[in-house]
Structure formats: C-alpha cells, structure tokens
Design a protein around this nucleic acid. Structure first.
Lengths: 234, 234
DNA sequence: CAATGACCGATCGTGCATGATCTATGAAGC
DNA sequence: GCTTCATAGATCATGCACGATCGGTCATTG
C-alpha cells in the first residue's frame, strides 16, 4: 500500500520474519496508514512481503493480543476500531500512567537516563520548530517513554507505551488542526518535568505530569468536539 | 505431564485449537505445573494434544506477548522466570491497581456487579473454611478481578489481571506456609471493601484497598524472608 | 405479474497439517 | 583449548479442508 511496505524483498535472516511483519503492521496501524476497520488479508500481505503466511499469522496473533487488530473467527482480521464511547477510560488510565511513571523517574533515574530524556526532548523541540505535526506526535511519545524507562517499572512502561501508541492513533485523526501555541507550551512543560526529575522532586514531578496530562486530554477533547461540530454542520 | 493435559484427544471444532492450547499452558504456568525455566517443546506438546505444531506456536506467541513464556531466538521457549530482584516493582504496580480498580468499582458499579462480587467472595470464604490454600489463591484473584470488571476500565483490568496471575505464581511457591489467621482477616477485609463499594464510598474503598494490598505485600515478603532463612540454614 | 424470501452452490480466506531448512548447542576429535 | 560436526528444535513454506459470505435460482405471496 505504501512505498515503504512495498520495498521489503531484501534478504532477511531467519528468525526476523515475524518481527519484520509485526513492526510494519504496527507502524502502519499506529500511523493510520491502515485506518481502523481495514481488513488485513494474509495472502496479500504474504505476496507483498514475499514470504509465507505462517510468519504473518504469528505477527497478527501478537497484534491481536495487544488489541491492535481484531480477528473475526473463520473470517478476516481487521484493524481495531478506536472506541470513542469509552475514551474517558483511556484518559483516566493515561493520566495515571503519566503521573506514576514521572514520579518513579524522579525517584529512580540515573544520570544516563537524563541524557536519553534530554535527547528525546531535543527531538521533540526540533519537530515543533519545524511545524511537523506528525513528528511532534511521534517524538512526544518517545520522550514520555524514555521517562517511563527511567522509572524502571516494566509493568507501568508496558501499559504506558500501549496507551501512548493508542494516543498517537487518536491524534493522527486530528493532527491537521494543530495550532502552534500548544506545542510551544508542551516544550516548556517538558523542560519543567525534566528539571523536577533531575532534582528528584517526586511531588513536583507528579504535579507537573498531572498538569501535562490534563493539557493533552483537554486538547484531544477539544479536537474531538470541534470535529463533532463540523460533522454536524454538513 | 499431568493427567489433565493428557486427556485432550476429544473432538474439537475449527478455530478452538489455539485457545485450547493457550488455556492449558496458561493454567499450567500459573499453577506452577510448569515451573519457571521449564522448556516447552512444540513437538512434544503437539503429540500430547494430538494436533499440529502450528496452533501451538500461535498459542506460544500469545503467551510470549503477555510475558508468561520467553522465546530464545532459534532455540527453545521456556516458562518465564519470576524476577525476585525486581519484586518491588510488582508490589508497587499491584498496590496501585488494587486501589484504582476498587475506586472505580465504587464509582461505576451497577447492582449486577455486586452480585458477581459477592458470589466470588462467597467462593473465597468457602476456600478459607475448607483450609484449601490453592483454592484461596484462585478465588481471591477472581474476587478482585470481578471488582476490576465493575470499574469498567479495560486498561486497568488487563494489567491488574496480569499482575494477579503473576501473584498466583509467586504465592504457589509458598502456599504451604499459609496460616489460618491471615485468610480469616482477608475475608473480613473483603467484606468491608464490598460495603464501601456498595455505598459508593470512593475514598473509603481506596483506603481499604490500599490496606488490603499492603497486607498481601507484607505477607508475601514475610514468606520470602522466611524462605530465605530456611535456604541459608541448609 | 412483480416482489420478497428461502435454498443452494461457487468462491474466497482462514485454520490446521506437514514437509523442508536453517541455527544454536553440545560432543567428539585434533 | 579450539575446531568440526552431529543433532535437536525452531522457523518458514506449502498443501489441504472447513466455514462463511455472496450471488443466483426458485417457490411463495400479495
């Protein structure tokens, strides 16, 4: 479908086939190259990637267990829908994960973690500078994932990354309506969070994370509300 | 290996093979029938369940994505170890999940949820009555899973159930050392939690959940410490 | 006579079985 | 101790069969 997915007849080593398919599909789903509801045909994919159906099925099983695709028994497997009715559960969970991961990062980080976090923040700032909304979404996710890693709780990082990826899908739906004021604010908030983490100010980090999460939740809700009005206006 | 896993040559419908293998392996891993580190041979399993390797591989992929098994590339897949060094991350995460799920249950439950929760509590009480430690562990998990369901946040329930299952594995290692005093206390604490949920007392439910979680964490830590001493005494 | 609904077969795609191949490991030989 | 080779087991390819959907045909009814 995309040029990227077409160009994969290169030699690949044994044992990397499943991961290859998994990564491609995961990226395409999160980037909405495959929009929710798209059917995923094993045979087409097998031909496109010039491999057999077996590794593709295994990648699909993995994606299904993470909720990114839904397999209809004996029929097809489709990209999972975004459940707009239960978005509040998403907001609730991601806000909590923002908070606990940032808290733990302030508590348990080591100097090397800060280097990674600052590098991710720099990438985010560059994306904002370049007005590249897609890059902003991706680098923002990486920034917070790095903070979570510094907290060193794999249970939280696992859930948090899932939620961040789901957030990427949602934001992609609306990224065209981004304004420049908010991203600049995010850059500043990120800097404050880094400072709190570096100072091992757990409560401060928590407070900033909560405020940051509320910002993002509010932004998404506004984007959705705006979209609703436009839809109704037709 | 067990009689249960042997008895599976019965007819099965198309599309249920993977789920069958997945459920059997999952139960055996959580119940420590397959202790951590056990190698899982696809061919042996295929012969034992009289099916081909394909559905077994797909079940293993699913288990791997949930962290219950670890696949060493191009070698074998083994049952994942319990990481005793990082147990504190487990305790931290499960305590938080106890709290948020109980809070949400107090907020969002409907009357039918309470029926399920009370039924699970009755089953737990019966297990305590019968001094059946294994049943206590299992029914306790079901009780809290029911509370989480009543909270209606699939992100939390997903992580919480994973943590509860991991807790089952840990407890199984030490279940022989259970005393009768603690389970009785758990029954009483469960009753208080139900009352708080039914009364929609969010803060009270939170407080009780935290106390309950602390109890359980403390118990596990004591069991481990006792085991350490015994190990050193050899 | 036209419209609607049930039955039936073709077709597509998944679910499972099995064969072929490669890789890592451990044992044997130098 | 290093190299070579045999072997076990994972990884991938391919073939077959079942199940579901879709279109057509025919009977029934207004």
């Amino acid at each position: 479908m995309t040029d990227k997915t077409m160009a994969a007849p290169a030699e690949r080593k044994r044992g990397e086939g499943v991961k290859l398919v998994y990564d491609i599909l995961r990226d395409d789903i999160i980037d909405l190259v495959l929009p929710p509801g798209s059917p995923i045909d094993e045979i087409q994919l097998a031909e496109r990637l010039s491999m057999s159906r077996t590794p593709i099925r295994e990648a699909l099983v993995r994606l299904a267990s993470e909720g990114l695709v839904t397999t209809l028994p004996n029929r097809s497997t489709v990209v999972s829908n975004i459940d707009f009715l239960n978005l509040h559960t998403f907001f609730d969970a991601i806000t909590l994960m923002y908070r606990v991961t940032t808290r733990l990062a302030a508590e348990f980080h080591v100097p090397a973690d800060l280097d990674v976090i600052r590098a991710r923040q720099a990438a985010f700032a560059r994306a904002v500078e370049a007005h590249d909304a897609l890059a902003m979404i991706a680098t923002n996710r990486d920034f917070h994932a790095a903070i979570a890693e510094a907290g060193r709780n794999p249970y939280y990082t696992g859930l948090f990354c899932r939620l961040l990826d789901e957030g990427r899908r949602i934001l992609r739906l609306y990224y065209s309506s981004f304004e420049d004021r908010l991203p600049q604010r995010y850059v500043a908030e990120h800097e404050e969070m880094i400072a709190a983490i570096a100072a091992r100010d757990v409560d401060g980090a928590d407070r900033l994370a909560k405020a940051h999460a509320d910002q993002i939740v509010q932004q998404i809700q506004q984007l959705i509300a705006r979209d609703r009005r436009q839809t109704l206006a037709l």
